[in-house]
């Protein structure tokens, strides 16, 4: 049985940045194997991807996408923007879905485009791709979505967005029966990628 819904990904896009949070638990069956796993991958200078799903698939797929996007940059001398990267990723997911070896991964892709500003893409293992102002994956996402509906605003600062994510994680810790103690947070803005402090259940 898959634990894809027991993991959690959160993403918020505002006027100046896009912020992604991912839980850090790696579990097999009923056992938690580790709680400091990295689920947010740096794809390029201004592009990150949060990936959850079957544990082998997540790493394999994320690295495959990251390396191919780097390869594109070497061959052509310019980088894929977030939209192009999302389309490339979606296409790959869709093609693998129709093969005998599909990747079972849900993901959020956040990046900063020089012309269009920050962008957030929601993608699931059935290769749907939607550009959204905020999004969430997993059961924790159900709990978080109404909080984002309530508090998200376009002109939020990075601190305010981090606070919204803290509220979401607090709700996951309070109401979700799964143990997801740590959430790593990454923000992408015009300056590049920045790693923010981990949101933990112990911290206030």
């Amino acid at each position: 049985m898959s634990n894809i819904n027991l993991q959690c990904l959160l993403g918020i896009q505002c006027n100046d940045f896009v912020m992604i949070a991912a839980d850090q638990s790696n579990s097999h069956s009923i056992m938690v194997m580790k709680d400091d796993e990295e689920k947010i991958y740096k794809i390029s200078d201004r592009l990150v991807m949060g990936v959850i799903g079957d544990s082998g698939d997540t790493t394999q797929f994320a690295e495959y996408i990251a390396k191919n996007i780097q390869l594109y940059k070497m061959r052509n001398g310019y980088e894929l923007g977030p939209t192009a990267a999302a389309n490339f990723t979606r296409r790959n997911l869709a093609e693998y879905l129709r093969s005998s070896t599909p990747y079972f991964v849900n993901l959020l892709m956040g990046g900063y485009d020089k012309e269009n500003g920050p962008e957030l893409y929601f993608m699931d293992y059935l290769a749907s791709s939607v550009k959204v102002p905020f999004a969430a994956h997993g059961f924790g996402g159900y709990l978080s979505l109404s909080i984002m509906d309530r508090y998200h605003k376009k002109d939020a600062t990075e601190d305010e967005a981090y606070e919204i994510l803290q509220m979401c994680v607090k709700e996951v810790h309070k109401r979700l029966f799964v143990s997801l103690p740590n959430f790593q947070v990454t923000v992408v803005n015009s300056d590049g990628i920045k790693v923010l402090p981990v949101i933990s259940s112990g911290a206030k």
Partner: peptide, 11 residues
């Protein structure tokens, strides 16, 4: 519903 819980708990 969990949607209501999110807003309720946070406020």
């Amino acid at each position: 519903l969990f949607y209501a819980f999110g807003v309720l708990d946070s406020g």
